[in-house]
């Protein structure tokens, strides 16, 4: 794979929440992201709905089109098939859950059009 995989998605990785609490990546819940963003002075949680999933430039990549936030800004990102996103109320999800499980040992659901993912934006932008 030509693109380095982020190490923090590996099962067992230790994640620090905004209040200092430590959790394993596989134990994170929707509330952990919401509460961390609530006490962050710079970051805000947005809801990003998956609008389209298309093939990427390389066979192991996909282009995901999101509708971001209340303004429904259209944003495309190209990621590896196994790249996990956190879906509200569901947890880690990727375009190829089998690959994510194989590479990261992280249990994943299949990311589908209509799923609402946790994303971040900056506070105070007007």
């Amino acid at each position: 794979s030509p693109v380095a995989l982020p190490p923090f998605f590996m099962r067992g990785s230790i994640i620090q929440l905004a209040d200092g609490e430590l959790k394993r990546v596989e134990d994170l819940k929707t509330e952990d992201f919401i509460q961390s963003a609530e006490i962050s002075s710079e970051l805000k949680i947005d809801s990003s709905t998956v609008e389209r999933i298309d093939n990427g430039q390389s066979p192991n990549a996909v282009v995901i089109q999101f509708s971001v936030g209340e303004l429904k800004a259209q944003v495309c990102v190209e990621v590896l098939l196994e790249y996990p996103f956190f879906v509200f109320g569901q947890g880690w999800s990727s375009c190829c859950p089998d690959r994510t499980t194989q590479l990261f040992e992280l249990s994943c659901a299949k990311l589908c059009v209509g799923d609402v993912c946790v994303s971040l934006t900056l506070r105070g932008l007007r």
Partner: peptide, 19 residues
Amino acid sequence: VPVFPWHSLVPFLAPTQSD
């Protein structure tokens, strides 16, 4: 053991003007 901040796990998508 490395510790990663929670915000590394979430994509930073285009800023919106909502608040």
